Simulated scan of single mutants.
Amino acid sequence: MTVGSIDVVAGIIVRDDRFLAARRSLSMSESGFWEFPGGKVEAEETLGQALARELEEELSIAIDAFSLWKVKEKKVKGRAIRLFFHLVTEFSGAPTPREGQELAWITCEEARGYSFLPADEEILSELSACLQTR
C-alpha cells in the first residue's frame, strides 16, 4: 500500500561528453554516494520550476535549456517516489557546491568507478547511449 508519493527532479547537467556528478555531504542521508543534483518538487511547482530552484540552491547555476529524459518510480518504505531525470544542455554560471558536496565532471565510463545512489545507478547505462547520440 502506498502511503503517499513524492516527486523528485534530477538534473543531468551535460557538457561535451561529460556530466556533473555530486557527492552527498556527510550531513546528508546516504552520505558519500554520488548523484545527479536535484530534489523534491514543492507544492504548486512545475517540474521545470523545481529543477531551476534546486540547481540554483545547490549549485548557483541557472538552467537555460533542458528536457525531460526519463521517469522512474521507486517504492521506499511504502512510499512511491517518482524521479524525473532531466537533461540540462545549457546553463549559466559556474557550478559551485553550496551544500558541502563534492562535484566532478565525469564520463559515463568513469562513472563505473563511482558509487551512485541506486536510482541514479540504474540509468547510467542508458545515459551513455543517450550522450553518444547527441
Rank of each mutant, 00 (worst) to 15 (best):
V76G: 00
L117S: 08
A80K: 12
I123R: 02
T46D: 01
L127P: 03
T96Y: 02
R98V: 09
F91H: 09
E90Q: 15
A111I: 01
T89C: 11
S29L: 13
A119E: 14
D64W: 10
A119H: 14
E44N: 12
T133E: 09
P37N: 04
A10H: 05
A50T: 09
E110S: 05
L20Q: 05
S60W: 02
I63A: 06
S5R: 13
E58A: 02
L47P: 02
F85N: 00
E58C: 01
E73L: 06
Q101E: 15
I123Y: 01
E73F: 04
L103T: 00
I61D: 00
E56D: 07
S92T: 10
A52C: 08
L51R: 07
S125W: 10
R15S: 13
L117G: 08
I63R: 00
G113S: 15
R112H: 15
L55M: 04
L68W: 11
R53I: 00
G32C: 13
Y114N: 14
G48R: 08
G78L: 02
V41H: 01
G113Y: 08
Q132V: 12
L103Q: 05
A22P: 03
S128C: 15
T46C: 00
I6P: 07
S67C: 14
G100K: 01
A21K: 00
G39M: 02
E73T: 11
E122L: 10
A94F: 07
V8F: 03
A119P: 08
S25T: 03
V9E: 08
A104C: 06
K77Q: 14
V71W: 07
E35C: 11
I63W: 03
S128Q: 15
L124N: 02
E56L: 05
F85P: 00
A22E: 06
I123E: 01
E73H: 08
K72E: 13
E126S: 15
A111L: 07
D17K: 03
V71Y: 06
A65I: 08
S67Q: 13
K75W: 11
